[in-house]
């Protein structure tokens, strides 16, 4: 969390590799919204996440950044139990996810669903209330009002009857955001909520995320645009299969960390845009050719 974390030697201990929880670190720390320890995920024989440790304090607005294929989505999905890790453990407010489901809300990538599904905006947002509703109970007036309120917060109240196939990309994102708001959670995990939205919508979404943080909730956002990280977020995790850095933006968002995460691909960032003083090495100077990356990073 000090911004210049040494990468742990990536030797997975035998019991961790066997998928058994590490009993020595089993005590949850208070004040942490998310604790990830020794997380390793592989698809077939290719590691997507390798021995990742993370500690996310409650009440931060955190960006997860890294190049394509860095495992950002996989990290979110393993926090939610959607991906089964080969090793490691995730705690949400001190307990495994399946015990903390009502504390957690999820915004999947917009492209993960079929928007031609026969349903309207309000129905999608009401899905956010299903988790607390339980079996055999149908959503009623209360859930409806809750969903309408959340639609209003994202500026989509006028669209409640709209068939979802008639939404623009930015509107789809806001509908998904409203659905997560309807869950009234403590921890929000969002997979690229700003992808494909215009500047105005981006502002509106960021305002809502800040509002959530202001209420002491924790927001984790997979984010692609490096330039806007210092402005939007107060916490940052840089990922490239392994954790490169994690901590407050001021200490984690350094040229050295970005170079390690992106290899030669951050040359477009000038020092002015990163807000990093001129005297530090220009990113383009320290760029390394991609083939210097470890061979398991593909």
């Amino acid at each position: 969390m000090d911004g210049s974390p040494g990468i742990k030697p990536h030797v997975v201990s035998a019991e961790a590799a066997a998928g058994e929880p590490d009993s020595t670190t089993a005590t949850p720390s208070p004040g942490l919204a998310i604790e990830v320890s020794d997380l390793t995920v592989a698809y077939h024989d290719r590691p997507v996440l390798w021995d990742v440790d993370l500690e996310v304090p409650a009440g931060v607005l955190m960006a997860v950044a890294g190049p394509n294929g860095a495992g950002k989505t996989t990290l979110i999905k393993s926090m939610l139990g959607l991906v089964k890790p080969a090793a490691g453990r995730v705690l949400i407010h001190g307990a495994p996810y399946r015990e903390q489901r009502t504390l957690t809300a999820y915004v999947p990538q917009r492209g993960s669903v079929d928007w031609d599904f026969p349903t309207q905006v309000l129905d999608v947002v009401m899905m956010g209330t299903y988790g607390k509703l339980g079996w055999l109970r149908r959503p009623g007036e209360k859930q409806r009002e809750q969903a309408m309120h959340c639609l209003d917060r994202v500026g989509m109240a006028d669209f409640w009857r709209r068939q979802i196939s008639h939404l623009s990309g930015g509107q789809q994102q806001r509908v998904f955001l409203a659905r997560a708001l309807a869950q009234d959670a403590q921890v929000y995990l969002m997979d690229e909520p700003l992808q494909g939205v215009d500047a105005t919508t981006e502002r509106a979404i960021i305002d809502i995320l800040r509002e959530l943080r202001g209420q002491g909730r924790t927001v984790v956002v997979v984010h692609h645009d490096l330039q806007s990280i210092p402005e939007y977020f107060d916490w940052l995790t840089l990922l490239n299969v392994r954790r490169i850095a994690s901590g407050p933006v001021e200490s984690a968002f350094t040229p050295e960390n970005l170079r390690r995460a992106y290899g030669g691909r951050v040359a477009f960032l000038s020092s002015r845009e990163t807000g990093i003083p001129e005297k530090s090495t220009a990113l383009s100077d320290v760029a390394v050719p991609p083939d210097e990356k470890p061979d398991w990073v593909r």
């Binding site: 959607l82 999947p108 669903v113 899905m127 988790g131 659905r179």
Partner: peptide
């Protein structure tokens, strides 16, 4: 009828259903 909302989520957004604990 009993599993209407669950089947609806299963058809629309399965992963979201998992995240809700279904």
């Amino acid at each position: 009828a009993a599993f209407w909302k669950e089947f609806k989520i299963l058809a629309f957004d399965r992963d979201y259903g998992v995240s809700l604990g279904m």
